[in-house]
Each structure stands twice: as structure tokens, then as C-alpha cells.
Design a protein around this nucleic acid. Structure first.
Length: 317
DNA sequence: GCACAGGTAGATT
DNA sequence: AATCTACCTGTG
């Protein structure tokens, strides 16, 4: 009601902010940028415009909504909508720009592992994101037996229906209206009836999310404390949450807490290690143990490259 | 129509 | 302790 009138009478939007360099040391190809943003770590990035030489993306997390593009000198960003005061710091953290990625890659056993060396060479610049802990937990509680496209759809509905508006800005959002909203916080989710969660296409995952929201609501500070714990203790605590098993816990710690020792074992990694490392028939727990011991303290980083390779090259040798 | 998809939890053996 | 199975639902 009156929507068209409001739209007509709305003042012209402010001019778009200028593009600025994200990091001189990170110059991924369009392909690797896509794998980093939309390869299963995060479910809140969408391509803008047409895919071409200049690959554009829009994403949203916490208080931030930003555009990214690939320019000749590397990745550039600008706020999508109103500028937030801490955007620079937020980007540094989200993309882990202060991390010495070369040193971490060098710590992997690529010298003695031909397949790993091949994966590292195939996706130069592939990074592990450092997303907000709670949002990562929500995303991966949606992930059970779902493909990325569908997980993104669930997150989009959760944001649009139960999240607060993100920073003011373009409402249409390049066709991705859900980016105008944040993902709901766990406090907000605690007040959402399970039936409304099911209406967001969550299926049986709705029960997990509802129960986890109630669990967290009864324990103020629990999630923040968990994020601050050492890896093993943090994982043990996450496993207490309904719907969180080994795989989801490791994904949350790897993609939402910067714990590179986490080695999530999903069906792709199971396939990858069966095929490339002769571990056919091994159980997930056994593969996880192999991963931790073989790849070491940065096992999660190795995992991301193996995962990307396996999805790309499927059945090939 | 039916198998399958980036798992988890509870029952059964 | 290891091994089934149900759980929702969109997609092919």
C-alpha cells in the first residue's frame, strides 16, 4: 500500500562509494575468488552484474554489506549502502588479511605430497574466511545433506524473514534482496517458533536450529566463551549443541573462528582421501585422524584445497 | 516416481 | 562400539 508513491517520493540515493584496494598481497583469479566466497565456506555472497573479466560480488555479514570486484591490481571493495565506521577493520578480519598465508601454506606437507602440491597450484590464493562465529554456526546447521545453492536459499529466507535490516542502502540489492537483511542472531532465533523456521525450507534442520537457539538463550555468553577456548575444548562444547556433530563443529571452528587445525570431513573429503590417498572404506573418524596427522597444524587449509579440487575434477585422475 | 544431496541423533545389533 | 535409519524438501 502506497509503495509506489514512497518509491517515487524517495530522494535520489547518494552516489556510490569509491572502490578501494582490499589487500595488495591478495590477488586471486576470478575463479579462486569465486571458490573462496561461494565454495561452501560462506552462504551470503552473490555475483553482481554479469560474470566476466571483472568478477563482481556482493556479500553481507554482521553489520557489513560490501561489494567486491576484481581489478587488474587485485581485489577492490566498497560499502554497498551506507558506510560503517569500522568497515576497514571488519574486512581485515573477515578476509584474515593479517594472517601470513604464505607461511601457513609452506607449513603444509606439499613437498612430499604430490596431490596436495597439485591442489595448491590449481587454486593459488584460495583463502579461509574468518566469519562471525554465530552466523557460521547458523549456516552450517542448515547444511546437512544440502547443496550450496539450497543452503544459501535457506539463509536468504532466514535473513529476509527474521533478520534485522542491514545498513541502509540499495533495497533491490542487485536482485539479492536478502542481503538487505542480516542473518538473525541466536537471541532473535530463540523467539521464532519452529514452524516458522520450517517455512524457511529448513526441513528437519528447523528442529536443530530451534533447539540450539533455546539452548543458547538459556546460557548467556556461552557462545562467546566457546569461541575463545582452545580448539579441542571449543569443539567439545559445540558438540553439546543439538544438530552439531563432528563435521559441523569443525566447519564452524575453521570458517568462523580461524582454527586452521580443524579438519571437517564431509562426503567430498571422504571421496578425495579415498581416491587420492588410498583410504577407500575408511570411516569419517579415521579419515579425520589421518587428516590431522598427515596435514598437521594447518590441516583445515589443506582440506579447503582438496575440497575445491575434488569438486572441480570429480571423477578424473 | 524415486534417488540423492557438503549430517545428526537415536535405535538396533 | 560399530552399523543402520529416519529426518524435510527441492532437484534431476
Amino acid at each position: 500500500m502506497g509503495k509506489a508513491v514512497r518509491a517515487l517520493s524517495r530522494p535520489a540515493p547518494p552516489p556510490e562509494a569509491a572502490w578501494q584496494a582490499l589487500a595488495a598481497r591478495w590477488q586471486p583469479s576470478a575463479d579462486v575468488l569465486a571458490e573462496t566466497l561461494d565454495g561452501g565456506q560462506s552462504f551470503r555472497w552473490y555475483r553482481t552484474g554479469t560474470a566476466g573479466a571483472l568478477s563482481g560480488w556482493r556479500g553481507q555479514w554482521a553489520d557489513q554489506r560490501v561489494d567486491l570486484r576484481l581489478a587488474p591490481g587485485g581485489v577492490q571493495w566498497r560499502p554497498a549502502g551506507a558506510r560503517t565506521a569500522d568497515a576497514g577493520a571488519a574486512l581485515r578480519r573477515y578476509f584474515a588479511l593479517d594472517v601470513d598465508w604464505e607461511a601457513r601454506l609452506d607449513a603444509l606437507p606439499w613437498r612430499s605430497d604430490r596431490h596436495l602440491a597439485r591442489c595448491l597450484a590449481a587454486f593459488p590464493g584460495l583463502r579461509i574466511l574468518r566469519q562471525p562465529f554465530g552466523e557460521t554456526l547458523l549456516g552450517f546447521l542448515c547444511s546437512a545433506t544440502k547443496q550450496i545453492v539450497q543452503i544459501k536459499q535457506m539463509c536468504a529466507l532466514l535473513a529476509a524473514r527474521h533478520g534485522r535490516p542491514a545498513v541502509p542502502g540499495p533495497a533491490a540489492d542487485a536482485g539479492h534482496a536478502s542481503l538487505a537483511y542480516r542473518l538473525p542472531t541466536w537471541a532473535e532465533l530463540a523467539d521464532v517458533p519452529e514452524a516458522e523456521l520450517r517455512a524457511c525450507l529448513l526441513g528437519f534442520r528447523a528442529r536443530y536450529i530451534h533447539a540450539t537457539a533455546r539452548h543458547l538463550a538459556a546460557r548467556p555468553g556461552w557462545l562467546e566463551e566457546t569461541e575463545a577456548l582452545p580448539y579441542a575444548a571449543a569443539k567439545a562444547r559445540l558438540l553439546e549443541l543439538p544438530g552439531v556433530g563432528e563435521k559441523v563443529a569443525d566447519c564452524v571452528l575453521l570458517f568462523g573462528a580461524g582454527r586452521l587445525e580443524a579438519f571437517p570431513v564431509d562426503t567430498w573429503i571422504l571421496k578425495a582421501l579415498a581416491r587420492r590417498y588410498g583410504l577407500a572404506g575408511w570411516k569419517p573418524a579415521q579419515v579425520a585422524h589421518f587428516g590431522r596427522t598427515h596435514f598437521g597444524s594447518q590441516a583445515g587449509l589443506a582440506q579447503q584445497f582438496l575440497f575445491a579440487w575434488e569438486r572441480r575434477h570429480g571423477g578424473e585422475d
